[in-house]
Computed example of a mutant assay.
Amino acid sequence: MRIESKTVRLRLVEPDDASFILSLRLDPKYNRFLSEVTNDVDAQRRWIERYKQDERDRTQFYFIIERLDDGSRCGTVRLYDFRQDSFCWGSWILLEENKTKTAALESTLMVYDVGFDELGFAKSHFDVRKGNEKVVKYHERMGAVRVSEDDENFYFEITKDAVDQVRVDFEKVIHKEPRKG
């Protein structure tokens, strides 16, 4: 599964991506709101190899975000926790120094393309750590609704209809050529 937008693509993670993923997850700029990992590339590689079975079973998908212009890796994102009508997404990290100007919006909408269009879900659920105000505001601007919270997280849902409205609003930003009809 590979999907492209205007400046970035999502491609399924491979074991050779282990050191890249680990470098993101260990970087203090990006890991403040992530679960901890150990500094062990072999353990990360083994995790990816086990995950590949989940991918074959269609129970989760882990993507590398790549720039279209030079093919360099600029982030990660994962879809998981598939329920009857909803999917969760997370592990979303974008390299500030290598992402494109619109990589956040494009990768978000491609996640929803996979979840809604490829997998057939009606909505998405996800959590954002409290204190991660930039990401909270981003998701609320996208149309996500805060449905609950606990001591550590805010919990959100977003529907396909809300995302479809965002697509209309940002049509020129996210597509190589404007869609017709």
Rank of each mutant, 00 (worst) to 15 (best):
Q53F: 07
R46T: 09
R11P: 06
C88G: 14
T159E: 02
D113L: 00
E140D: 09
Y62H: 14
A162G: 01
T100R: 13
N98C: 12
A104I: 03
S5R: 09
L12K: 03
G143A: 05
V41G: 08
I65D: 00
E118M: 09
W92M: 07
G120S: 02
R45W: 00
D81V: 09
W92E: 08
E66R: 00
K101Q: 03
V13N: 02
T108S: 06
R167A: 02
R32E: 11
D54M: 11
E106Y: 05
R25V: 01
D40P: 01
S91Y: 15
D81N: 15
D127T: 08
W89H: 12
D40I: 07
Y138F: 15
F154T: 00
L26D: 04
V135W: 06
D85C: 00
E14S: 14
L26V: 02
R83M: 14
V13L: 06
F126L: 04
F33N: 04
M110W: 05
T59Q: 15
T76Q: 07
R45M: 02
E49G: 03
D164N: 15
G143P: 04
K172N: 12
K176P: 00
Y30M: 10
D150W: 09
L10D: 03
K180L: 15
I158A: 02
D127L: 09
I93R: 01
I21T: 06
K52N: 02
K134V: 10
H139V: 06
D169T: 05
Q44F: 08
T59G: 08
D161E: 15
D113K: 13
F82S: 02
E4M: 01
R2M: 08
K137P: 03
Y51K: 13
Q53E: 13
E149D: 15
V136L: 13
W47D: 05
F154G: 03
Y112R: 10
Q84T: 13
N39L: 08
E171Y: 00
E36Y: 00
S91R: 14
L79A: 11
L95A: 11
S19G: 04
Y112K: 13
Y138H: 03
Y112W: 12
E106R: 05
N153G: 04
S124Q: 07
E149W: 13
V13D: 06
E14F: 13
D40L: 07
L94K: 07
D40F: 06
K52Y: 08
C74N: 02
F87Q: 05
E36P: 11
Q60C: 15
L22K: 10
S23N: 11
D69V: 12
I158Y: 01
K137Q: 14
E66L: 13
M142Y: 01
S124E: 07
W92F: 15
F156C: 01
S72C: 12
V41N: 07
D127C: 10
L79E: 07
D70G: 00
E49I: 11
R78C: 14
D150E: 10
G75N: 06
N31C: 07
V114L: 13
L109P: 04
V168R: 12
F126D: 03
L95V: 11
D69W: 07
Q53K: 14
E157N: 08
G143W: 05
G181Q: 13
L109Y: 03
A18F: 05
E177K: 13
D27T: 09
L34H: 06
R78W: 11
E96R: 12
A162F: 04
V13A: 12
